[in-house]
Design a protein around this nucleic acid. Structure first.
Length: 803
DNA sequence: TGTCTAATCCCAA
DNA sequence: TTGGGATTAGACA
């Protein structure tokens, strides 16, 4: 006898336990029976099931239940549950059974068994599956639906309970550990003799504990917030939002970091300061590192790490507040076109000067920007924490970067809590703006599920770094970085804060408003670049690449071409900014060179990506009273190229291939060909990359060999394509409405009110012998080239009268 | 008193 | 209209 035969056996066997328990006298018995069955069922096995079937069959003999069921059916009620509720149509039941009693019933073990079976395979059956099951089990379709609904809820609750207990255990463990540490700190013992430890002996261990403790603090914080989430109420201790320096319940005293940086320490703890910078500790004794211990600039390495950690925590706190607070910290935002400005009085009130006082000759630049970026928080965090990927994400902003040191790799294989020391050269694409060289800590913290923050803060005060060269402006970054929050649509909301102090005297007057406005190296540029680059990645990764190809390029060819274009643009930026990634020799300016044209040379020796010989770079920046968009559109239009480009041979150019890198047509890599062919350049094409976003635009190009390009477009290695880039960088002049006009005096030769700064740069091979000496003629040639190009552009844009 | 379970109510997509 | 979360109510340990 099978289940189906039981259930298919007509009215008598068409039973439900609802019918059975509707008998008050038997309800308890049968329910107990059903429970007993359930436990049997758990034993599993066909024999068991059959037994249950038989017992169930006995139940089916209960005429009352059978009868009642048929009555229910006769009743024609659309819902079994209505009947079970003692619906008004069932007078007999109301009379015979107290309403409370008959409402309750449980599905039969068989039914549950079957439901469980399907649930294992598919916890979310569709309408069809549910109907089929309800037919088979003789249940209302809605009963099946409710069952699955409840089962899912139950499953969720079980999982949550399980996770909760794990978190609680973890939490207890951390508390215990913390107590131990606290205890150990109260009674320092010498590891060798067991006697009371001397202060000098404790310091190493103590510093280790501090680091460990900070990590535990973070971890506990995370666990508490998670546990709180599951319990639906906050779990003490909640330390995440507390000011790190004041949350001394866990932090083991004040570690002297503040003193090291000239800050006023908020508290003095029982634990003395071991860091002695330019003086003695509060106890009056200078602790010198014992022999064999690593020291850096006189500061113990573990002390140094502890200082990094403390600084990172303070910086993180500041970043989060800077990103989230509104007025009075930030004023002037919100209105159409109005720019937010940091209220420095309020800033100084709200935050400790975590990296010390601002040098007198420095100016401040603080900007904030929020934008939606098509990337998830984890991916963005990974990119930011990886030096190479970070540079690839912001190619025109970062000239060079290295990871100097890793202080912490993060908790449990994630980037949460990762702390690293980095060096970077940040650039604005103009010879008039020196590179910003910064040594900073980068600290990553997960604040909630899908919410991350990455903060940078300068560390020049802690470790000795080589003094910046002359092509480098003094610069320090106050807590800067971003808050990333996952959005349901796959985008992230990124709030960027960029706060720097730099020596403005090193920057040409023309570029000062740009920098102060935040378009130069501020939050707007970071966010705009991030948006553009992520959009590009999304487009390249999507299968439906929107392409206006005139020629069919294979996917491999497209990749190669983009890689080549990226190398071209990177080299262009390196030439404009004289970054240290290439060894440029600055030329003492001969008389013939214009005042603002910077000329440099370098030797190209073993790089297959460049022609060998002496490479000369010339770059200049000029102001133009036109919008960046207007200039960009003009320069990237291949049909208008003959108006300024000698490579066009006097005629319009033709686009041979086009790879879109963004929604905006201005973001693309294309291949151009001069339609007017001259004898010696017949085998030449022009590779061009253009990009544009709210912070500026770029047109970079390089003549390339046709056979070499052919190879690349078929997916060949682009590393062997020799090229030297030239091009333009266009940025708004920063003097737009509402911008500071601090530097817009007459000496710039510019008028107030929304123009552009155009940088023109060429790299050309002046001699194919790397050892050759530079001649005055070649310098004059390149100077002529650059001044003529600028002049031609001005003429084409009707600006010939502008000096 | 707390847990399990079938069912209901209400809200948002 | 549907599914999910919150809630209810009866049974039971």
């Amino acid at each position: 006898m099978s289940f189906s035969s039981l259930f298919d056996g007509g009215a008598g066997s068409n039973l439900t336990y609802g019918g059975a328990v509707s008998q008050p006298a038997q309800g308890g018995v049968l329910s107990a029976l059903s429970l007993g069955l359930q436990s049997n069922m758990e034993g599993g096995g066909q024999g068991e099931m059959r037994r249950m079937g038989i017992i169930g069959g006995g139940g089916s003999g209960d005429r009352d239940s059978g009868g009642r069921n048929s009555k229910e059916e006769d009743n024609g009620s659309p819902s079994g549950s209505d009947n079970l509720d003692g619906g008004s149509g069932d007078d007999q039941l109301d009379l015979e059974n107290p309403r409370k009693k008959k409402r309750y019933h449980r599905h039969t073990p068989q039914q549950i068994q079957e439901l469980e079976g399907l649930f294992k395979e598919c916890p979310h059956p569709d309408e069809k599956q549910r109907l089929e099951l309800s037919r088979r089990l003789n249940l209302e379709s809605r009963q099946v639906k409710f069952w699955f609904q409840n089962r899912r809820t139950q499953m969720k609750t079980q999982i949550e309970r399980h996770e909760n207990s794990i978190l609680k255990q973890e939490n207890d463990k951390l508390r215990a550990e913390n107590m131990q540490i606290k205890e150990a700190m109260r009674n320092p013992m010498c590891g060798n003799c067991g006697g009371p430890a001397m202060l000098g002996e404790v310091s190493l261990e103590e510093q280790h504990l501090r680091i460990e403790n900070a990590r535990l603090k973070d971890e506990l914080d995370r666990v508490c917030s998670l546990a709180g989430k599951f319990l639906g109420r906050p779990m003490p201790p909640s330390l995440g939002s507390a000011l790190p320096l004041s949350s001394l319940d866990l932090a083991v005293g004040n570690n002297g970091f503040a003193a090291a940086l000239g800050m006023v320490a908020p508290t003095l703890s029982a634990v003395p300061d071991f860091v002695s910078v330019g003086g003695s500790s509060p106890l009056g004794s200078v602790v010198t590192a014992p022999p064999g211990r690593t020291t850096m600039g006189g500061v113990d390495r573990s002390v140094e790490r502890s200082m990094y950690l403390e600084l990172a925590l303070v910086a993180m706190d500041e970043l989060v507040k800077m990103a989230q607070m509104e007025e009075p910290l930030w004023v002037g935002g919100g209105l159409e076109g109005g720019k937010e400005v940091l209220n420095y009085d309020e800033y100084l009130r709200a935050f400790p000067r975590c990296i010390g006082e601002k040098p007198v000759e420095f100016v401040s630049e603080a900007t904030r920007e929020t934008g939606m970026v098509i990337v998830n928080s984890m991916a963005l965090v990974e990119t930011l924490m990886d030096a190479t990927r970070w540079m690839d994400m912001f190619p025109c902003m970062i000239a060079r970067t290295t990871m100097t040191d890793i202080v912490s790799t993060g908790v449990a294989g994630t980037r949460n809590g990762a702390l690293q020391l980095m060096h970077a050269e940040l650039q604005v694409l103009s010879p008039l703006v020196p590179i910003r060289e910064v040594n900073f800590l980068r600290f990553c913290k997960q604040h909630a599920e899908g919410v991350w923050a990455v903060v940078d803060v300068s560390v020049d005060g802690i470790r000795e770094f080589p003094q910046p060269g002359e092509s480098n402006m003094g610069c320090r970054r106050l807590p800067s970085g971003c808050l990333v929050q996952d959005m349901p649509n796959g985008y992230s909301k990124v709030t960027w804060v960029e706060h720097a102090e730099y020596n403005e005297a090193m920057v040409h007057r023309m570029y000062r408003p740009l920098l102060r406005s935040g378009i130069g190296l501020g939050a707007r540029r970071w966010v705009a670049t991030l948006q553009r680059q992520c959009e590009c990645l999304a487009i390249l990764m999507s299968s439906s690449i929107s392409s206006r190809d005139h020629t069919a390029i294979t996917a491999g060819g497209r990749r190669s071409m983009l890689k080549l274009a990226q190398r071209m643009t990177d080299n262009f930026c390196a030439g404009v900014c004289a970054s240290s990634s290439h060894k440029w020799n600055k030329l003492n300016r001969p008389e013939s060179i214009g005042e603002d044209v910077r000329v440099m040379t370098r030797q190209s020796l073993d790089d297959p990506g460049e022609p060998p010989g002496v490479v000369l770079s010339a770059a200049t920046s000029v102001w133009m009273p036109l919008s960046p968009q207007r200039i960009f559109d003009f320069l990237r239009d291949e049909r208008l190229r003959s108006q300024w480009d000698i490579l066009s041979n006097g005629g319009p150019m033709q686009e041979m291939a086009h790879i879109a890198k963004g929604q905006d047509h201005g973001n693309a890599v294309s291949l151009l060909r001069a339609s007017a062919v001259s004898a010696n350049q017949s085998s030449m094409l022009i590779l061009q990359e253009t990009c544009t976003d709210a912070s500026g635009s770029l047109v970079v190009y390089a003549p390339v060999d046709i056979p070499a390009m052919h190879l690349v477009m078929n997916g060949g290695d682009s590393a062997y394509v020799a090229l030297l880039p030239s091009g333009f960088a266009i940025v708004p002049d920063g003097d737009g409405p509402g911008q500071l006009a601090a530097a817009s005096d007459k000496s710039d030769g510019r008028r107030a009110g929304g123009g552009s700064l155009l940088t023109v740069a060429f790299q050309i091979l002046v001699n194919s012998l790397p050892s050759a000496k530079l001649t005055v003629e070649s310098v004059e040639t390149v100077n002529n080239l650059i001044t003529c190009t600028v002049q031609k552009i001005k003429v084409a844009l009707n600006l010939e009268n502008i000096v």
